[in-house]
């Protein structure tokens, strides 16, 4: 910073107002200095390391979850004999989600060029390893489903069995895509995640179902199963909100996400059974809620890691 008369005035005003100045290299001004001790740990410094993940990871949680649930919806729609455009669109959303997910996950690596090392071993005890393999399977199977679908439509090749078998596999790995991210966060040393380990995978599954059915609705599909599914997921989110609040997690983003995922779409869907606009609004709210949910949870982990009191058993 270039020293100017204005800067000196600014420093003086800040010092007068707050009794301290904030500038690079100055940190000791927060007197009285904390002491180490049984009550505050080592000078109140964090005991754990915060997650290093940036925006790609929560966005991946959202996209991968929606894609996974979409693959499941495709199978359910097909089994029930629903319109084939719905089945096809659900399969396409799943495949597109896999295509977007992969670069998101790779670009967050510290060494993206080594992403294939993820498939060097399979470690069932590492949720990250399970997740990498799940994504690999999901990407392959959703791609195969859509490819077989298209080929069959254009060439009359007898590929129904292939696309259905691949679709079933995609749904199976899709269940993993929608839930493993909750395991990934829950089974860590980060207090706020570990405390909610019983809830996170179910919470993320509900969020995934809500976003997949909302996406399909926004694509123009009017099958009544979609709002029904989305309402069920929203109802669970209302319950999850209460659980999260009880575990003492306070974060504005998480509150906003809960409102957008639970009560708001639920009310809109119940009140507006006959209103197309209410349904659209509900779908948009669910999608936004689902997206913010993932960001809010990753952020909550970063905040939680800074507080040494939980790992030290002080609260």
């Amino acid at each position: 910073m270039k020293a100017t008369e204005e800067r000196l005035d600014e420093l003086r005003r800040q010092a007068e107002r707050t009794g301290r100045v904030d500038a690079k290299g100055i940190r000791a001004a927060g007197a009285p200095l904390p002491e180490p001790g049984a009550e505050h740990g080592y000078y109140g410094l964090p005991l754990l390391k915060p997650p290093v993940w940036t925006w790609e990871i929560p966005l991946y949680f959202f996209v991968g979850g929606a894609a996974g649930a979409s693959a499941m919806i495709a199978v359910a729609a097909q089994v029930s004999g629903a319109d084939e455009t719905l089945v096809r669109d659900a399969r396409r959303i799943a495949a597109l989600g896999a295509v977007i997910s992969t670069p998101l996950l790779i670009s967050d690596l510290g060494r993206p060029e080594r992403f294939l090392n993820m498939l060097r071993v399979f470690k069932p005890r590492s949720p990250m390893s399970v997740g990498a393999w799940t994504l690999a399977a999901f990407g392959t199977l959703t791609g195969a489903t859509v490819l077989a679908d298209e080929l069959q439509r254009r060439t009359d090749l007898p590929l129904t069995f292939v696309s259905n078998a691949a679709g079933a596999g995609a749904a199976l790995s899709g269940l993993g895509m929608a839930t493993y991210t909750g395991v990934l966060l829950g089974a860590t040393a980060i207090p706020v995640w570990a405390e909610n380990v019983n809830m996170l995978p179910i919470h993320f599954a509900a969020s995934a179902v809500a976003s997949a059915s909302s996406l399909l609705e926004l694509c123009g599909h009017q099958h009544r199963a979609l709002p029904l599914l989305a309402s069920g997921a929203a109802a669970y989110e209302v319950y999850a909100t209460r659980e999260v609040a009880r575990s003492g997690v306070t974060s504005t983003a998480l509150k906003a996400a809960s409102l957008l995922s639970g009560p708001i779409p639920l009310a809109l869907r119940l009140l507006g059974i006959r209103s197309k606009r209410a349904r659209r609004a509900a779908a948009l709210a669910s999608l936004a809620g689902s997206l913010i949910t993932r960001f809010a949870w990753v952020e909550a982990g970063k905040v939680s890691a800074r507080d040494p009191r939980v790992p030290l058993g002080l609260m």
Partner: peptide, 29 residues
């Protein structure tokens, strides 16, 4: 924490399967 986490994931996955099959079965084709 893995047993608890994967149990929850299993519950979530089962709910997804049952929920979507039931929703589509209820609403017909």
């Amino acid at each position: 924490l893995l047993p608890r986490a994967w149990t929850a994931a299993g519950i979530g996955a089962a709910a997804m399967v049952i929920g979507s099959l039931a929703a589509f079965a209820m609403c017909g084709s």
